[in-house]
Design a protein around this nucleic acid. Sequence first.
DNA 1: GTCTATACATTGATAGAC
DNA 2: GTCTATCAATGTATAGAC
Lengths: 208, 208
Amino acid sequence: MANTTHFSTKDRILGAAEELFAQHGFAGTSLRQVTSRADVNIAAVNYHFGSKENLVNEVFRRRMDDMTALRLSQLKTALEQHPGELRPVLAAFVEPALAMSQDRHGGGAFVRVVARAYAEKNDGLRKFLSDHYGHVLREFGKAIATCVPGLSKEELYWRLDFLAGALTYAMADFGLIKRPADVTEAAHRERAARELIRFAEAGIRAGN
Amino acid sequence: MANTTHFSTKDRILGAAEELFAQHGFAGTSLRQVTSRADVNIAAVNYHFGSKENLVNEVFRRRMDDMTALRLSQLKTALEQHPGELRPVLAAFVEPALAMSQDRHGGGAFVRVVARAYAEKNDGLRKFLSDHYGHVLREFGKAIATCVPGLSKEELYWRLDFLAGALTYAMADFGLIKRPADVTEAAHRERAARELIRFAEAGIRAGN
DNA sequence: GTCTATACATTGATAGAC
DNA sequence: GTCTATCAATGTATAGAC
């Protein structure tokens, strides 16, 4: 079954929007580009989503819920099976972002869309994200705090922020590291996750 | 001398563009917004800069050259006065970004513009940055390598990437850390720099 | 050399036929 | 639920007055 057919108009719009948002940003993507790629009429987007801003939010919700669920369940497992260990907690934060980016119909674009979301901090999107997914960060904050008792609450949040920034950049390929031609995209991202977890573990534990 | 007068049309456009780009991104900022804020005619931007894309590049060049010079000179000092020490090298990378964000006519917006630049990776801007400022990263890479001999070239570049990502986020206030009302913007950024340097030092030294 | 007026394309969104 | 036609607003770029 090819992936170009048997998708509803709504899903085709979401998919096309996701890819274009990842590539050109939100403001930089026109609804006409979206509907053209999705092979639907220009009016369909307003019929199904009401407005461009709402389409942006829906593009998020569709995958963000999955990623959040993945993170929280992996965190739960980590806390149960490796209590007091920092690395599994960090892995629970980083690896789901990696998983999202693997193959399954277009999730790869999504991690880049997330990075956009951070950058386009103006409109209601950031509030939308903070309102709906802020609790995830707090969960991880608590988990990390128990693994690294000496850390003040302030320091903890700074470091979580650094981790989130580094993760976003690495996953979005915003950085300077260019994937060598002989390394697959999947292997490259896997490497990124591994390196980042080590880097962040040391950073979060940093004393002095 | 107020800062609204005695500036050329060209400089007023650059200043207005910088602030608006920081706030709304490149695609999200219209030339009409720019010229309106700069209090010049809509056509002036095309007269002075030729196109919007070129205006974007010029907004960069104006401050990026300063920041690059600052970084390289501070790096030189660090290598001379504290040879073999990692932290002064990292400070030379991080602190100039902080310095740019202090007061002096609107540089604060610039660090946010830099973050935008990373995110808007599509057009010629990334190539422009890589072509003109890529050597800075290589300089720092070399300096770090001498401080942390065990590091492979690949690991080094991954970690530099993480540092750049975290720096960009922290300086652009993209993260979750919200500045408390009783802390000045300057103090907040200073704290960010200090925390990041410690975090990155540990991360870059990470073994295992 | 500098700016004003304006042309022209494209945007997001809506109305109404089918 | 989907389309065509079209709107007002806003985008970029140019021609020509000063």
